[in-house]
Structure formats: C-alpha cells, structure tokens
Design a binder for these strands. Structure first.
Length: 445
DNA sequence: TGAGTACGCTTCGCTATATA
DNA sequence: TATATAGCGAAGCGTACTCA
C-alpha cells in the first residue's frame, strides 16, 4: 500500500493498494481511541481502481469520517453515534433547494452543471463536512425499493379510497400489490428501484410471455401486471422529482380481443320464460336476474339499488341508477333513469324494495355466483361462453333491432356517447324513453 | 386539423378456492 | 350450502399518436 498522488487536489487520507484499489485510511489520535472502540485507525476501501471515481468517493468518505470525528471531539463514543438516514439527507437536500442524488448516480450520469451548483451551495454554507455535505453530495446510496415505492403510492393516493366499500377498496389495492409481488418474486428480492433496468424488465416480459405460452395467464393479465408496476414507478418519479427513467415505459404485449356472446330472444323466450326453471333459485336472486333483462343493468347496479331508487308505483314505473351509500358508479355517465317494462317491471313489482340480501359490498359477487351456478346446473346457458353479463349484450342487440336512437342506446347502457353533454340524467323525458322501451317489451309477446 | 387507431388505465363480472 | 376472498379477464373510457 502506498499514498496516492493527486493532481491539484489535497487528499491526505487517500491510499492505493498493491492491487490498484483505492483506500481511505486515517489514523485516530490516541486521545479518541477509547471512544472509537480502541481502534487506532479508520480504513475503508473505495471499491474502485479508477482514479476519477476514487476522487469522488474519497470526498464522500471523507465527509463521513469528518462527521464521526466531529462527534468524537464532542465526547460521543462511536457506538452511540447515529448516522443520518437517507430520508433525513433527502429532506436536508430539499431544504437547500437540491434534489438528493447519490454519489453513484453522480458517477454513472455525470452532470457538470449540477455538480457546480452543489459545490456552489456547499461553499455558500461555509463548506460543512457533516450531514450537510452528505445531503449535498449524496453520501448514502438511494436504495428506495419497489415495495417502498408501492407504500408511497398507496399513502399518497389513500384519498381515492374514501367512500368506497371494503370490496371496492380491495379491488383497487390488490391487483397493484399482486403485480409488485410477482415482480419481486421474479427478481428474487425487493431490489432498489435504481437496480431495475430495461434488461431486467425485458427478462420479466419474456418470463410473462412464457406463462402466456403455457396457458397459465392471458396477455391481458400480463399487460396488467406490467401496467401496475409501471404506474407506481411513474407516480414515484413524478412526485419525488427524481431523474430515474421508468424502464417499464412502453413494455406491453399484444392482446387478442375476445367478447362475451349475447343471448338470443328466442333462447330466453323458450328456455327462461316458459316452464318453471327458476323455482329452485332464491327469490331475490331470481328477481335480480329478471330485473336485468329489460333494464340492461349489470349485477352491481341491480344489487346496489336502494328502496328510494325504485319507483314501481309511479305514473311511469322506473328505477334510478345513481351513486348511493351502497355502491359507487363505474363512471359519471353511468347514472340514469330507466322506465320499467316487461320482465323487469314484473321483477320489481315482486321486489319493490330491491334485493336487500345482496345490497352489501360483496353482494354482486354472491349474486353472480348463485345465478351462474343455477343457470349452469339447469342447462339455461345458450353456450358455455354465455354468462349473466350476456343479458346486457342482448339488451343492446334488442335496442338496435327496434331502432332506438343511438344516443338513447348509449344512455340506457350507461355508456358515453359523443353527442351527449356532461349531465346525462336530465337529458331525456322519462315518457319519451318509455315509448321506445315499450318496443322492447314486444320481444316477449 | 380532424379522423382513426393504439395504448394506458380503471372498473366490473366470473370463478376457483377457502371458510363459516 | 351459502358466502367471502382474491385473481383473472372483459368492457370501456380518455388520451396520445399517426396520418392524410
């Protein structure tokens, strides 16, 4: 080992080993050795043979030992000294108007303007050597991991969960957490964000393609796994003002679009409306199922109807699909007033207060489960690809067949239509809608 | 500049499995 | 046997991008 020579720069504690690696080596004065666990010197490898890298790391290490000596001088023993945390350094850097940047980031992406600004700030503060210097030049590596990014994302977005049911909260949080879990499992560790690079993400993409090939997941699911991780990293980058670039950007797999089939009027008439195929299905589930036929509502919309949303005795019987204490709506334009005709009118006449057994956070799932089980076991599905949701497709087909105006079709489906204004609920006279819906009723005659 | 398309993302339905 | 839970997949909206 020998003392390293430097050019235009004093580095009295810089040494170079026989193997070429640089080293920080500094003697501890005898008066401080008791406090320093009886050690006679500090020695720390700078983990590089590169002169330029060694100079940068020397500054970082020197700053650290200056802080240690500062505390030793004040009588604080080594074992009682507490190093500043990464969060504390980040916070201090921010208070100087600087973005915290680790020493490794300075080395991997040198920015002379940025370094000059930091040196300027350091000089302005009187060339401090303790945590102030650590904060300005980034003595600790930025080791924020993907799970910490997830925690940050959830914490910052917790306002979005206000007013949601437990099931809705679960549906929001679980997919993101699962996506992070799967990536961490693939990476074999909760690695720091800065270590996740494009190569690793492409390897993960290949891993997902393999899972699609073996049939364990669909491309849609793979895209969602990528999307959720991409989303939280982008959020972290935007909100922490970091210069890290998101390696998940643009990573996506080709999807094949598939659609659920619609029931036919003939099948419903011959298989559902003749005979007694639904007597073994509980009364509320039966009512909810038939309520969907002539309203076009989905299970969640029907389950969440409050008694005050159902007006069977009105001059024009109708239901109001709107946000209430039992459920939120998918989109703002999902809210609508639907006149009751045909099978749905009969269902609500039997259930004027709605379906209280299913008016709860997991009600839609329970309803879907019980109905699908009944339809399957009683051979009431047109094909194996049909589901309860196929009723909504049938409702759409019937509106087309009876030539309802396209805008009204969108309104009744709760879809957005380009010609609609922002507030759809007041856009139609209920009597006007009823006159069109009476045409649908003819399908069952 | 406007129409068409692809992508990013959220919401909701279906279902296998666990649990009461 | 009904219900709860959680994961997968489809539906659909908003927006960025492309191209004539």
């Amino acid at each position: 080992m020998r003392k390293a020579t430097t050019h235009g720069f004093k580095a009295r504690y810089l040494y170079i080993r026989g193997d070429g690696n640089y080293l920080y080596r500094r003697a501890i004065p005898p008066g401080y050795r008791i406090l320093a666990n009886r050690r006679s010197e500090f020695k720390e490898s700078l983990r590089t043979k590169d002169y330029n890298v060694a100079i940068v790391r020397y500054g970082e290490t020197h700053s650290k030992y200056e802080a240690i000596f500062d505390q030793l001088r004040r009588g604080i023993a080594l074992k009682d000294q507490k190093a500043p945390t990464l969060d504390e350094l980040k916070s201090k850097a921010a208070s100087y108007g600087l973005l915290y940047k680790s020493i490794d980031a300075h080395i991997s992406k040198p920015d002379l303007k940025d370094i000059a600004a930091r040196i300027g700030k350091w000089r302005e503060l009187g060339e401090p050597t303790g945590p102030e210097m650590d904060a300005i030049f980034g003595s600790l590596p930025d080791e924020t991991t993907l799970r910490q990014v997830l925690t940050f994302y959830e914490e910052q977005n917790r306002g979005d969960l206000i007013g949601l049911t437990s099931r809705e909260v679960s549906k929001k949080l679980t997919p993101v957490r699962s996506a992070v879990d799967r990536f961490v499992t693939f990476a074999k560790a909760d690695i720091p964000l800065k270590n996740i690079n494009k190569g690793m993400v492409n390897a993960y993409r290949s891993h997902l393609i393999h899972q699609i090939e073996t049939g364990s997941i669909q491309a849609n699911t793979a895209n969602k796994l990528l999307m959720h991780v991409r989303k939280i990293i982008t959020f972290y980058i935007n909100n922490m003002d970091t210069d890290y670039s998101n390696p998940f950007l643009g990573i996506r797999l080709k999807e094949e679009k598939a659609a659920r089939p619609a029931f036919t009027v003939t099948f419903i008439k011959t298989k559902w409306l003749s005979g007694n195929h639904f007597t073994s299905l509980n009364e509320e589930a039966r009512g909810a199922l038939f309520a969907m036929i002539d309203t076009g509502c989905g299970p969640k919309e029907v389950c969440g109807l409050a008694p005050e949303d159902i007006h069977v005795e009105a001059e024009i019987p109708h239901i109001i699909v709107r946000q209430n204490q039992y459920r939120s709506l998918k989109t703002a334009h999902r809210g609508r007033i639907i006149p009751l005709v045909g099978q749905s009118l009969l269902a609500f006449q039997k259930n004027p207060n709605g379906f209280p057994s299913y008016r709860r956070p997991t009600g839609q799932d329970a309803l879907s489960g019980v109905i699908m089980k009944h339809l399957r076991s009683n051979n009431l599905l047109e094909t194996t690809g049909h589901t309860v949701y196929s009723l909504r497709h049938l409702f759409m087909d019937r509106m087309r067949k009876h030539q309802l105006p396209e805008e009204l079709q969108s309104y009744l489906m709760g879809h957005k239509h380009p010609t609609m204004g922002a507030h759809y609920g007041s856009g139609y006279e209920t009597s006007h809608v009823l006159s069109y819906m009476k045409k649908l009723e003819l399908d069952w005659k």
